[in-house]
Simulated assay, not measured.
Amino acid sequence: MPDGDIALKLPTMRVAYEGGTLGESELLPTWHEQLQRWLDEAASQGLPDANAMVLATAGGDGMPSSRTVLAKGLDERGVVFFTNYTSAKSHDLLATRYASATFPWYGLQRQVTVRGTVEKVRSAETAAYWAQRPRGSQLGAWASPQSIVVSGRGTLESALANVERQFADAETIPVPPHWGGWRIQPETVEFWQGRADRMHDRLRFKNTRGGWKVERLGP
């Protein structure tokens, strides 16, 4: 199909959002309990990668970047994901100490956006998660020069083969020194539910000096 034909259809592409409502009385007492509820519902509905979130960062120069990562921890302290500490995202986080992450549950006409400061998780927390990872994923973390330009796929496969030989006799693989977790410590958490006529429900938990409060935002 010619590109022009695809572009002509973009203005007419729309979905009727009639999947649900979100009122203040429906919210659980805390943002993390409400987020856990929606995560559980997304998973129970069979949405693929229900814990996937689009992580947005900015470098010291203000240039924004976004990518999808998997949430691997959730409690009152924040939302945790794990990555290479030499990656582009980690460089951004070290430069600004801020991040935003959105869970896009299109199948439920919902999304949640978590926004706030970041901190590295403790090494014990990283080690506990690392022990649950498949061996292949552990090897990949050692082999991957994340965000670094490589000459081709062969370079990556060669690096993985070297790591496999290095740990061939190892029953357990240690955590790489350059790998670990980041925690987004929310200042705001917005719950969005699609509604008819684009009059969506937007309820935001906001951390204030007096504690958390809930605000309704215009759609």
Rank of each mutant, 00 (worst) to 15 (best):
S123E: 14
S123Y: 04
A124N: 10
A124H: 10
A124K: 07
A124L: 09
E125T: 15
T126D: 10
T126W: 00
A127M: 07
A127P: 01
A127F: 00
A127L: 10
A127T: 08
A128E: 14
A128C: 07
A128F: 07
A128S: 13
A128I: 00
Y129L: 07
Y129N: 01
Y129P: 09
Y129V: 00
W130M: 02
W130H: 03
W130S: 03
W130N: 01
A131E: 11
A131P: 00
A131F: 03
Q132Y: 00
Q132K: 11
Q132E: 11
Q132D: 08
R133M: 05
R133S: 01
P134F: 05
P134C: 06
P134H: 05
R135E: 05
R135T: 08
G136P: 01
G136Q: 12
G136M: 09
G136W: 06
S137Q: 04
S137Y: 03
S137A: 11
S137E: 02
S137C: 00
Q138P: 09
Q138V: 02
Q138K: 15
L139I: 14
L139M: 11
L139E: 13
G140W: 08
G140I: 09
G140C: 08
G140N: 11
G140L: 06
A141H: 07
A141L: 07
W142G: 12
A143G: 13
A143C: 12
A143H: 12
A143W: 10
A143M: 11
S144Y: 06
S144Q: 09
S144M: 09
S144A: 10
P145A: 12
P145R: 14
P145W: 05
Q146G: 04
Q146N: 06
S147E: 02
S147I: 05
S147M: 04
S147D: 03
I148P: 00
V149M: 12
V149R: 13
V149I: 12
V150P: 07
V150T: 15
V150F: 04
V150N: 08
V150A: 07
S151G: 12
S151F: 03
G152Q: 09
G152E: 09
G152W: 10
G152Y: 11
R153M: 14
R153E: 13
R153G: 15
R153F: 13
R153T: 13
R153V: 13
G154A: 14
G154D: 15
G154E: 15
G154Y: 10
T155Y: 14
T155E: 15
T155D: 14
L156I: 15
L156V: 15
L156E: 14
